[in-house]
Design a protein around this nucleic acid. Sequence first.
DNA 1: TTTTGAGTTGTTCGA
DNA 2: GTCGAACAACTCAAA
Length: 467
Amino acid sequence: MTSPTVLWFRRDLRLSDHRALLEASRHSGVVGLYVLDPVLLAGCGPSRAHYLAQTLTALNESMGGALVVRAGDSAEVLAEVCREVGATRVYVTEDFAPYGRSRDERVRDHLAALGVELLGMDTPYAVRPGTVRTQAGTPPKVFTPFFRGWEATSPPPPLDEEVTPEWVTLDSLEVNTIFRYAGTRRPDLFGDLPDPTATTFADVGEAGAQRQLEQFLTRLESYGEARNTPGEESTSRLSPHLRFGTIHPRQVLAATRGTSKSAGVFRSEVAWREFYGDVLFHQPQSVWRALQPAMEHLRVDDGEEARSRFRAWARGETGYPLVDAGMRQLLAEGWMHNRVRMVCASFLVKHLHLDWRWGARWFLWCLIDADVASNQHGWQWTAGTGTDAAPFHRVFNPTLQAERFDPEGRYVRRYVTPLAETPAPQCLQPGGGGGLLAPAGYVAPLIDAARERDEALVRFAEVKATR
DNA sequence: TTTTGAGTTGTTCGA
DNA sequence: GTCGAACAACTCAAA
């Protein structure tokens, strides 16, 4: 009997279509390990911590209770586990985010000194970051050339081989130990803001991901049209599953392949996730630095008054119903519809004149699907600091967006409860219609959107003039 | 090397 | 109400 191997779970919390697990289980028993990393968990807000805990619980159940959970520095935990069982090989799905890459480098060196090999394979993407190139051999910097190259790259098909590892059990912490480490580094910026409140989730884990995918397939053909309507269930809702790897994108792509307009639109949305993973791989500094360096000089507001505006935004009290609905959905569910994410982000940057990093931090704290590549680059795109040479005059009008994408006010009235009885179109207007008809319990507009739009254009012009 | 066409998701204004 | 143009140039990718 050869000694066991270790499968170190990270962003791949599933058992099927798992290449590293398949390799790990070829010749011997497998220790399935999850490490509670205090550094990673420190910035994880309570809703995502609950989501992760439930995902790990589901994984543990599907392993017959054999999941080994340990806490501490990854290098030390891995070394200890390998020593306990005499393992000389650790298998992982490669991680491409900056923290994961440097951590893995450190773990690899640490284990090598002990005669243990860290074997990375597969990725959380359909196409491995760094693969797609322009004809000149450079990484694509804008989406469309990336998308062309990405579509021309055929990802490996999902594995349908059944893997039945012989799990090796060891002493393990309870999954709920996670709450001892999660959210210990709450930014001062957040002040007295409430934390996101969602603690239970439908359709978690690998089986949950499959159910979500099945559900989505029944509405795939209307996706192209309906995906921008936040008031109805029209998107895939797969983002948290892709975030934690309870499903792999290649399986999503295989299930949704087709030539219809909607299938193509959905594929391009998956490709955006891949594009941002690729950009982050090539430019790891872009987590907190503008991709367009000149934009670091954009004048943003700071100080106590700016912070109180930030907190009004985060609480969903700007007086702009669509923005407030989105921010309240985020607090209540740990998730927000993508169209509304853009409107809320645009509002923070272009109407409140605050640093995009403030908003990105809040989203990272609150979202159950928070992914550093998609979140930061989505924010940069909206802020005009990102990958495309953003036409800076592109400022979302929060009222017009509400009228266009939530004409009946279904979304707004669902999340902004003081507006629940206010009919459209009043419920879409600043202050919920304002004046004497202002609904009780709702707030007056924090700012005048038309005026602040002009102010944003002035500030963008300043950047252009000084470079 | 130079040139050309294009670039997720928008808004406002005036005809 | 609808529609096209203007917004202000710049970077990127490919020919």
